[in-house]
Protein backbone atom coordinates (compact mmCIF):
# COMPACT_ATOMS: atom_id res chain seq x y z
CA UNK A 1 0.00 0.00 0.00
CA UNK A 2 2.80 2.37 0.87
CA UNK A 3 4.82 1.53 -2.23
CA UNK A 4 7.71 3.89 -2.82
CA UNK A 5 6.95 5.93 0.29
CA UNK A 6 9.39 6.87 3.00
CA UNK A 7 7.48 7.31 6.26
CA UNK A 8 8.79 8.95 9.36
CA UNK A 9 6.32 7.80 11.98
CA UNK A 10 6.20 9.60 15.33
CA UNK A 11 9.93 9.47 15.91
CA UNK A 12 11.22 10.79 19.22
CA UNK A 13 14.76 11.31 20.44
CA UNK A 14 16.25 12.95 23.47
CA UNK A 15 19.80 13.64 24.48
CA UNK A 16 19.76 13.58 28.26
CA UNK A 17 17.31 16.30 29.23
CA UNK A 18 17.23 17.88 25.79
CA UNK A 19 14.36 16.80 23.58
CA UNK A 20 15.63 16.71 20.01
CA UNK A 21 12.58 15.18 18.37
CA UNK A 22 9.01 14.92 19.64
CA UNK A 23 6.69 12.73 17.57
CA UNK A 24 8.23 13.80 14.29
CA UNK A 25 5.99 12.49 11.54
CA UNK A 26 5.78 12.98 7.78
CA UNK A 27 6.09 10.98 4.62
CA UNK A 28 7.79 11.44 1.30
CA UNK A 29 6.08 9.86 -1.68
CA UNK A 30 7.48 8.29 -4.79
CA UNK A 31 8.79 10.86 -7.25
CA UNK A 32 8.31 13.72 -4.83
CA UNK A 33 10.73 16.45 -3.85
CA UNK A 34 10.17 17.15 -0.18
CA UNK A 35 11.72 20.23 1.39
CA UNK A 36 12.54 20.12 5.05
CA UNK A 37 12.90 23.53 6.64
CA UNK A 38 13.34 24.82 10.15
CA UNK A 39 15.71 26.92 12.16
CA UNK A 40 19.01 25.56 13.39
CA UNK A 41 18.57 22.93 16.05
CA UNK A 42 14.95 22.25 15.15
CA UNK A 43 15.67 18.56 14.56
CA UNK A 44 16.19 18.23 10.80
CA UNK A 45 19.61 16.62 10.98
CA UNK A 46 18.58 14.33 13.83
CA UNK A 47 15.59 13.14 11.80
CA UNK A 48 17.79 12.36 8.81
CA UNK A 49 20.38 10.61 10.89
CA UNK A 50 17.70 8.43 12.43
CA UNK A 51 16.29 7.64 8.98
CA UNK A 52 19.77 6.48 7.96
CA UNK A 53 20.24 4.41 11.09
CA UNK A 54 23.24 6.47 12.07
CA UNK A 55 21.33 7.35 15.22
CA UNK A 56 18.85 5.17 17.10
CA UNK A 57 15.42 6.61 17.86
CA UNK A 58 14.01 6.43 21.37
CA UNK A 59 10.53 5.83 19.98
CA UNK A 60 8.78 5.70 16.63
CA UNK A 61 9.68 4.07 13.38
CA UNK A 62 11.01 4.84 9.92
CA UNK A 63 9.36 2.79 7.17
CA UNK A 64 10.16 2.24 3.53
CA UNK A 65 7.57 0.53 1.33
CA UNK A 66 5.52 -0.04 4.47
CA UNK A 67 8.20 -2.05 6.28
CA UNK A 68 10.55 -0.80 8.98
CA UNK A 69 13.90 0.27 7.56
CA UNK A 70 16.65 -2.31 8.11
CA UNK A 71 20.34 -2.23 7.27
CA UNK A 72 19.45 -3.97 4.00
CA UNK A 73 16.88 -1.36 2.93
CA UNK A 74 19.01 1.45 4.28
CA UNK A 75 21.63 0.58 1.70
CA UNK A 76 19.06 1.63 -0.90
CA UNK A 77 19.07 5.19 0.48
CA UNK A 78 21.42 7.80 -0.84
CA UNK A 79 22.64 10.06 1.92
CA UNK A 80 24.46 13.37 2.05
CA UNK A 81 25.26 14.17 5.67
CA UNK A 82 25.26 17.73 6.95
CA UNK A 83 28.91 17.41 7.88
CA UNK A 84 30.45 16.57 4.55
CA UNK A 85 32.67 13.58 4.67
CA UNK A 86 34.89 11.76 2.24
CA UNK A 87 38.35 10.25 2.55
CA UNK A 88 40.57 13.29 1.98
CA UNK A 89 43.43 11.28 0.47
CA UNK A 90 41.39 8.98 -1.74
CA UNK A 91 40.98 9.64 -5.43
CA UNK A 92 37.55 10.71 -6.68
CA UNK A 93 36.93 7.65 -8.82
CA UNK A 94 38.25 5.17 -6.24
CA UNK A 95 36.15 6.79 -3.59
CA UNK A 96 32.92 6.59 -5.58
CA UNK A 97 33.58 3.00 -6.64
CA UNK A 98 34.28 2.06 -3.04
CA UNK A 99 31.08 3.66 -1.76
CA UNK A 100 29.03 2.06 -4.53
CA UNK A 101 30.46 -1.34 -3.63
CA UNK A 102 29.75 -0.77 0.02
CA UNK A 103 26.12 -0.23 -0.91
CA UNK A 104 25.97 -3.65 -2.52
CA UNK A 105 27.00 -3.03 -6.14
CA UNK A 106 29.28 -5.42 -7.97
CA UNK A 107 32.69 -4.03 -8.85
CA UNK A 108 31.76 -3.69 -12.54
CA UNK A 109 28.48 -1.92 -11.86
CA UNK A 110 30.20 0.30 -9.33
CA UNK A 111 32.78 1.39 -11.90
CA UNK A 112 30.16 2.03 -14.55
CA UNK A 113 27.98 4.07 -12.20
CA UNK A 114 30.90 6.04 -10.77
CA UNK A 115 32.08 7.00 -14.25
CA UNK A 116 28.54 7.94 -15.19
CA UNK A 117 28.09 10.31 -12.25
CA UNK A 118 31.56 11.75 -12.67
CA UNK A 119 30.61 12.67 -16.22
CA UNK A 120 27.15 13.95 -15.33
CA UNK A 121 28.49 16.18 -12.59
CA UNK A 122 31.32 17.53 -14.71
CA UNK A 123 34.14 15.99 -12.71
CA UNK A 124 35.83 14.21 -15.56
CA UNK A 125 39.09 16.11 -15.37
CA UNK A 126 39.22 15.55 -11.66
CA UNK A 127 38.49 11.83 -11.49
CA UNK A 128 42.09 10.91 -10.61
CA UNK A 129 42.62 13.70 -8.08
CA UNK A 130 42.61 13.31 -4.35
CA UNK A 131 39.47 14.78 -2.83
CA UNK A 132 41.44 17.12 -0.57
CA UNK A 133 42.95 18.78 -3.66
CA UNK A 134 39.58 19.74 -5.12
CA UNK A 135 37.89 23.10 -4.74
CA UNK A 136 35.06 23.24 -2.22
CA UNK A 137 32.48 23.32 -5.02
CA UNK A 138 33.93 20.24 -6.64
CA UNK A 139 34.09 18.46 -3.29
CA UNK A 140 30.36 19.13 -2.99
CA UNK A 141 29.79 17.58 -6.40
CA UNK A 142 31.72 14.50 -5.36
CA UNK A 143 29.63 14.39 -2.21
CA UNK A 144 26.46 14.45 -4.30
CA UNK A 145 27.87 11.75 -6.58
CA UNK A 146 28.62 9.72 -3.45
CA UNK A 147 24.95 9.92 -2.48
CA UNK A 148 23.78 8.93 -5.95
CA UNK A 149 26.41 6.47 -7.11
CA UNK A 150 24.62 3.33 -5.93
CA UNK A 151 21.44 4.35 -7.75
CA UNK A 152 19.42 4.69 -4.56
CA UNK A 153 15.66 4.20 -4.23
CA UNK A 154 15.42 7.07 -1.73
CA UNK A 155 17.48 10.22 -1.47
CA UNK A 156 18.06 11.99 1.85
CA UNK A 157 20.18 15.14 1.62
CA UNK A 158 21.08 17.36 4.53
CA UNK A 159 21.67 20.94 3.33
CA UNK A 160 22.73 19.97 -0.19
CA UNK A 161 22.75 23.58 -1.37
CA UNK A 162 24.84 25.14 1.35
CA UNK A 163 28.07 26.59 0.06
CA UNK A 164 27.26 26.12 -3.63
CA UNK A 165 27.80 28.78 -6.27
CA UNK A 166 24.79 29.65 -8.50
CA UNK A 167 25.94 27.33 -11.28
CA UNK A 168 26.36 24.44 -8.90
CA UNK A 169 22.94 25.23 -7.41
CA UNK A 170 21.44 24.82 -10.88
CA UNK A 171 23.29 21.55 -11.43
CA UNK A 172 22.16 20.26 -8.05
CA UNK A 173 18.52 21.33 -8.66
CA UNK A 174 18.55 19.69 -12.04
CA UNK A 175 19.91 16.41 -10.66
CA UNK A 176 17.37 16.38 -7.84
CA UNK A 177 14.50 17.00 -10.25
CA UNK A 178 15.70 14.29 -12.60
CA UNK A 179 16.17 11.84 -9.76
CA UNK A 180 12.69 12.51 -8.43
CA UNK A 181 11.32 12.13 -11.95
CA UNK A 182 12.50 8.51 -11.97
CA UNK A 183 10.15 7.81 -9.06
CA UNK A 184 12.63 8.27 -6.25
CA UNK A 185 11.35 10.12 -3.18
CA UNK A 186 13.78 12.93 -2.45
CA UNK A 187 13.90 14.74 0.88
CA UNK A 188 16.33 17.54 1.55
CA UNK A 189 16.76 20.22 4.16
CA UNK A 190 17.69 23.77 3.34
CA UNK A 191 17.74 27.27 4.64
CA UNK A 192 17.39 28.70 1.13
CA UNK A 193 13.64 29.09 1.23
CA UNK A 194 13.26 30.62 -2.22
CA UNK A 195 14.95 27.53 -3.60
CA UNK A 196 12.73 25.22 -1.61
CA UNK A 197 9.68 27.13 -2.77
CA UNK A 198 10.73 26.85 -6.39
CA UNK A 199 11.87 23.24 -6.30
CA UNK A 200 9.74 21.29 -3.88
CA UNK A 201 6.45 19.56 -4.39
CA UNK A 202 5.82 19.58 -0.68
CA UNK A 203 7.38 21.31 2.27
CA UNK A 204 7.54 20.46 5.95
CA UNK A 205 8.37 23.09 8.54
CA UNK A 206 9.98 21.84 11.74
CA UNK A 207 9.96 23.58 15.07
CA UNK A 208 11.21 22.28 18.38
CA UNK A 209 11.50 18.71 17.17
CA UNK A 210 8.06 18.37 15.58
CA UNK A 211 6.55 19.14 12.22
CA UNK A 212 4.30 22.21 12.57
CA UNK A 213 3.26 22.63 8.96
CA UNK A 214 3.31 20.33 5.98
CA UNK A 215 1.84 20.51 2.53
CA UNK A 216 2.39 21.77 -0.98
CA UNK A 217 3.79 25.24 -1.28
CA UNK A 218 0.39 26.44 -2.51
CA UNK A 219 -1.42 24.88 0.41
CA UNK A 220 0.95 26.44 2.87
CA UNK A 221 0.76 29.84 1.28
CA UNK A 222 -3.01 29.74 1.16
CA UNK A 223 -3.25 28.84 4.80
CA UNK A 224 -3.31 31.45 7.51
CA UNK A 225 -4.85 34.88 7.46
CA UNK A 226 -5.81 36.51 4.15
CA UNK A 227 -3.98 39.70 3.29
CA UNK A 228 -5.06 42.25 0.78
CA UNK A 229 -2.99 44.87 -0.94
CA UNK A 230 -4.96 47.99 -1.81
CA UNK A 231 -3.42 50.80 -3.86
CA UNK A 232 -5.71 53.76 -3.42
CA UNK A 233 -3.93 57.10 -3.89
CA UNK A 234 -5.67 59.83 -1.97
CA UNK A 235 -7.34 57.64 0.58
CA UNK A 236 -7.05 59.19 4.03
CA UNK A 237 -5.21 57.27 6.75
CA UNK A 238 -7.46 54.95 8.67
CA UNK A 239 -9.89 54.45 5.73
CA UNK A 240 -10.11 50.71 6.43
CA UNK A 241 -10.56 50.91 10.17
CA UNK A 242 -14.33 50.76 9.98
CA UNK A 243 -14.45 47.48 8.09
CA UNK A 244 -15.33 44.72 10.56
CA UNK A 245 -12.62 42.04 11.03
CA UNK A 246 -9.98 43.94 9.07
CA UNK A 247 -6.89 45.64 10.38
CA UNK A 248 -4.13 47.49 8.62
CA UNK A 249 -0.77 45.77 8.77
CA UNK A 250 1.30 48.34 6.95
CA UNK A 251 1.09 51.40 4.75
CA UNK A 252 3.75 52.03 2.13
CA UNK A 253 3.16 55.14 0.01
CA UNK A 254 -0.28 54.75 -1.45
CA UNK A 255 -0.40 51.01 -0.81
CA UNK A 256 -2.08 49.60 2.26
CA UNK A 257 -1.79 46.00 3.42
CA UNK A 258 -4.90 44.81 5.21
CA UNK A 259 -5.19 41.56 7.09
CA UNK A 260 -8.60 39.98 7.32
CA UNK A 261 -10.00 38.11 10.27
CA UNK A 262 -11.72 34.72 9.77
CA UNK A 263 -15.16 36.18 9.08
CA UNK A 264 -14.18 39.36 7.29
CA UNK A 265 -15.34 40.11 3.76
CA UNK A 266 -12.76 41.28 1.23
CA UNK A 267 -15.49 43.00 -0.82
CA UNK A 268 -16.29 45.18 2.17
CA UNK A 269 -12.69 46.36 2.15
CA UNK A 270 -12.89 47.16 -1.56
CA UNK A 271 -16.12 49.12 -1.04
CA UNK A 272 -14.58 51.06 1.83
CA UNK A 273 -11.62 51.98 -0.33
CA UNK A 274 -13.70 52.98 -3.33
CA UNK A 275 -15.82 55.14 -1.04
CA UNK A 276 -12.84 57.40 -0.29
CA UNK A 277 -10.59 57.23 -3.35
CA UNK A 278 -10.05 55.58 -6.74
CA UNK A 279 -8.54 52.10 -6.41
CA UNK A 280 -5.68 51.26 -8.79
CA UNK A 281 -4.83 47.84 -7.43
CA UNK A 282 -6.66 45.34 -5.33
CA UNK A 283 -4.92 41.97 -4.83
CA UNK A 284 -4.93 39.07 -2.50
CA UNK A 285 -1.43 38.72 -1.18
CA UNK A 286 -0.15 35.28 -0.40
CA UNK A 287 2.73 34.99 2.04
CA UNK A 288 6.00 33.70 0.67
CA UNK A 289 7.51 30.62 2.23
CA UNK A 290 10.02 32.86 3.90
CA UNK A 291 7.24 34.86 5.55
CA UNK A 292 5.47 31.69 6.64
CA UNK A 293 8.71 30.41 8.05
CA UNK A 294 9.33 33.62 9.92
CA UNK A 295 5.90 33.57 11.47
CA UNK A 296 6.52 29.99 12.59
CA UNK A 297 9.81 30.94 14.15
CA UNK A 298 8.18 33.92 15.87
CA UNK A 299 5.54 31.66 17.33
CA UNK A 300 8.37 29.56 18.64
CA UNK A 301 9.87 32.54 20.41
CA UNK A 302 6.54 33.47 21.88
CA UNK A 303 5.80 29.93 22.94
Amino acid sequence: MAQGVLEIDRVSKRYGDVVALRDMAFDVRAGELFGFVGSNGAGKTTTMRIALGVLAADAGEVRWNGAPVTLETRRRIGYMPEERGLYPKMKVLDQLVYLAELHGMSTDDAHRSAENWITRLGLRDRRGDEVQKLSLGNQQRVQLAAALVHEPDVLVLDEPFSGLDPVAVDVMSQVLRETAATGVPVVFSSHQLDLVERLCDRVGIVRGGSLVACGTVDELRSSGAVRLVVDAPGAPPGWADAVPGAHVVSVTGTRTVVELGPDADDQAVLRAALAVAPVREFTRQRPTLAELFRSVVTEEREA
Binding site: G53, R75, P81, E83, G85, Y87, P88, L102
Partner: peptide, 17 residues
Amino acid sequence: VEEKSSRVVEILLSTLR
Protein backbone atom coordinates in the same frame (compact mmCIF):
# COMPACT_ATOMS: atom_id res chain seq x y z
CA VAL B 1 40.34 9.22 13.71
CA GLU B 2 40.73 10.09 10.03
CA GLU B 3 37.30 8.66 9.31
CA LYS B 4 35.88 10.36 12.34
CA SER B 5 37.41 13.77 11.75
CA SER B 6 36.62 13.76 8.02
CA ARG B 7 33.05 12.64 8.90
CA VAL B 8 33.15 10.00 6.21
CA VAL B 9 32.24 7.58 8.97
CA GLU B 10 28.67 8.87 8.85
CA ILE B 11 28.25 7.74 5.25
CA LEU B 12 30.02 4.47 5.98
CA LEU B 13 27.83 3.66 8.95
CA SER B 14 24.67 4.28 6.95
CA THR B 15 25.55 1.16 4.98
CA LEU B 16 27.85 -0.78 7.34
CA ARG B 17 27.57 -1.97 10.88
